[in-house]
């Protein structure tokens, strides 16, 4: 399937916006529940950063689409099968270890992607990436330090972190999966080919995992489907909570 640049921008911005939004919402679920007060604030700060990135990407998606949909409309009036986020980020928090491992696997990818997008010839894309990059660099530092702390911590924290890594690893392949939108933008030189991010991502992950005394799982079968709107059962519950207010009171304003 060939698509034009505007359609490709719409698809790509939707993918990044949805991924940021869903992960941001997942992190926000820790608000008031994190193991330490300081970490509670850190996680909700990062959640807000991610929701901020989602706003920018979804606004860009709405403009590229040209159908008059704004960020709120895209965030709150689409159902599960219209969401294009990676399956990794909709996986439930389960425990702090799962949350941190999920975050690290995503952050390590996001920092590679945004570094390249920041030099995109498309001013809209480059602007969002440059702004997000400063935050994402902190995110990956934060989550990597926690992976090391937990992995190289107590026997219990080590076991839980390894379990999280094993469980979430099969969701990492999708981050590098090309779709029509990302391929078209790569061909146009606007975005990198996602497969090209894999080597540096894998090196960063391998370093951190080794320092954390964890075992990197083997690359086997990988989950797919998020890019086509085929999501795990978890996303429906997340959207139900996130979208309740705007759906119940459609024209509510602050």
């Amino acid at each position: 399937m060939t698509i034009d640049t505007q359609q490709a921008l719409f698809g790509f911005a939707l993918r990044l916006g949805d991924t940021s939004l869903v992960l941001g919402h997942r992190l926000s679920e820790w608000c008031g529940h994190a193991p330490e007060l300081e970490e509670d604030i850190a996680l909700t700060n990062i959640a807000l950063d991610l929701v901020g990135h989602a706003r920018l990407w979804l606004s860009l998606a709405g403009e590229a689409e040209g159908q008059g949909r704004d960020e709120d409309r895209l965030a709150y009036r689409r159902d599960v099968f219209d969401y294009r986020n990676h399956l990794l980020v909709e996986q439930p928090n389960r425990d702090f270890g799962h949350t941190i491992v999920r975050q690290f696997l995503h952050d390590a990818w996001a920092v590679e992607l945004y570094e390249r997008l920041a030099t995109s010839p498309d001013a809209g894309v480059a602007g969002i990436a440059a702004k997000a990059l400063k935050e994402v660099r902190y995110h990956v530092q934060h989550s990597a330090e926690w992976v090391i702390r937990l992995g190289d911590g107590t026997a219990v924290s080590h076991a839980k972190t390894q379990e999280a890594l094993d469980r979430l690893w099969p969701y990492t392949g999708e981050m590098f999966e090309a779709d029509a939108a990302s391929s078209a933008l790569a061909a146009a030189g606007i975005a990198p080919a996602l497969a090209d991010l894999r080597a540096t991502w894998a090196a960063r992950v391998a370093d951190t995992v080794a320092e954390a005394t964890l075992t990197r799982p083997a690359d086997g079968w990988m989950h797919k489907g998020g890019l086509r709107g085929e999501h795990s059962e978890h996303l429906g519950y997340l959207l139900a909570e996130m979208q309740f207010l705007p759906r119940a009171y459609p024209d509510a304003v602050w």
């Binding site: 300081e38 970490e39 604030i41 850190a42 700060n45 902190y138 530092q141 934060h142 330090e145």
Partner: peptide, 11 residues
């Protein structure tokens, strides 16, 4: 100390 700097940044 490293975590303290990170936490200070957030708090």
């Amino acid at each position: 100390a490293k975590m303290a700097l990170g936490n200070a940044r957030d708090v």
